[in-house]
Amino acid sequence: MGEEQVVREIGHDEYDPKGTLALIGVYFVILLVMWVFMYFVEFLGNELTVV
């Protein structure tokens, strides 16, 4: 099992989750682009405007 393979202890103050920040930044950009596409292209560009 994986739990036992700790090669170094990292405490709270010495840990900056920079990989997490990078990953979640990528997610943020994907969300933004997809939202704009869904709302303005798929929805507002779709046939029959409801007024």
Partner: peptide, 17 residues
């Protein structure tokens, strides 16, 4: 994800990804 990253770094992981 940060908790997983903590695990990965304790297991010797490095780099941004």
């Amino acid at each position: 994800v940060a908790s997983m990253e903590h695990g990965a770094r304790q297991r010797g992981g490095t780099g941004l990804f």
